[in-house]
Simulated scan of single mutants.
Amino acid sequence: MSRRLFFVIRDGGRVVAAAGYRRWPSSVAHLGVLTSSDCRGRGLAGAVASAAVAEALRNELLPQWRARPEPSRRLARRLGFC
């Protein structure tokens, strides 16, 4: 069974951004990031993604980001991927 770990930012009781990873074979942490459409552009995705990457590294995992949409690619570059 693979382990999953998530980080969230809440606005009141509502989750507005989340990121996490799923542990894959060979010590890979496959990352995922989501931000509520009405909260984009505020740096929330970067905050939760950065926390997920840091946690993966603390656990001696290799963070992997498969960015396809351009906003995801931009965030990946800001976080040092590419």
Rank of each mutant, 00 (worst) to 15 (best):
V15K: 04
L79V: 04
R4G: 04
S27F: 08
A17F: 01
V33D: 04
R68S: 13
S36E: 11
A54K: 10
E70N: 04
L75Y: 12
V16L: 02
E70H: 12
A56I: 12
R68N: 11
A18C: 14
G43D: 03
T35L: 01
A47K: 15
L31M: 14
A51W: 10
R23F: 02
R68M: 12
V28P: 11
R77S: 10
C39E: 13
A49N: 01
H30N: 12
A17W: 00
R23L: 11
G32N: 13
R3W: 06
A47V: 13
I9Y: 02
R10Y: 00
T35C: 04
L44Y: 14
S27R: 14
P25Y: 08
T35A: 05
L34V: 03
R14V: 05
A56R: 13
L34S: 06
R22F: 05
R22N: 12
T35V: 15
R3H: 15
G43C: 03
A51K: 12
V28E: 15
G20R: 10
A49G: 10
L75V: 05
A49L: 02
V28G: 12
S26D: 11
G32W: 08
G20W: 03
R58D: 11
L62G: 07
S36R: 03
F7A: 00
A18L: 11
E55G: 05
A47E: 15
R77E: 10
G46F: 06
R66W: 11
R74N: 12
V53L: 09
P25A: 14
A49I: 01
C39F: 15
F7V: 00
A17M: 02
A51C: 06
C39I: 02
E60Q: 13
R77F: 04
L57A: 04
L62F: 07
A56F: 05
S36F: 02
C82L: 12
A47T: 13
V53Y: 07
S36Q: 02
R40L: 01
F6C: 03
G12D: 03
R23G: 00
W24D: 12
A47Y: 04
S26C: 07
A54T: 06
S72E: 13
L75F: 09
S50C: 04
R42S: 04
V48L: 07
V53C: 10
Q64I: 03
P69Q: 13
C39M: 14
G41I: 07
P71V: 06
E70Q: 14
E55R: 12
F81A: 07
P69V: 11
R73P: 06
R3I: 11
S2R: 06
G13D: 15
F81Y: 09
C82P: 01
R4T: 11
S50D: 04
H30P: 00
V33Q: 03
V15L: 06
L79K: 05
R14N: 07
R22K: 14
R23N: 03
L34C: 02
R78K: 15
R40V: 03
W65L: 08
R3T: 14
P71A: 09
R58A: 10
G12H: 00
V16G: 02
R23H: 07
Y21W: 13
S37L: 03
A47P: 00
R68I: 15
L31W: 10
S26T: 06
Q64K: 08
A47M: 15
L31V: 08
L34E: 05
A49Y: 02
S27G: 08
F81K: 07
R66C: 08
P71L: 05
P25T: 11
I9G: 01
G46A: 12
C39Y: 14
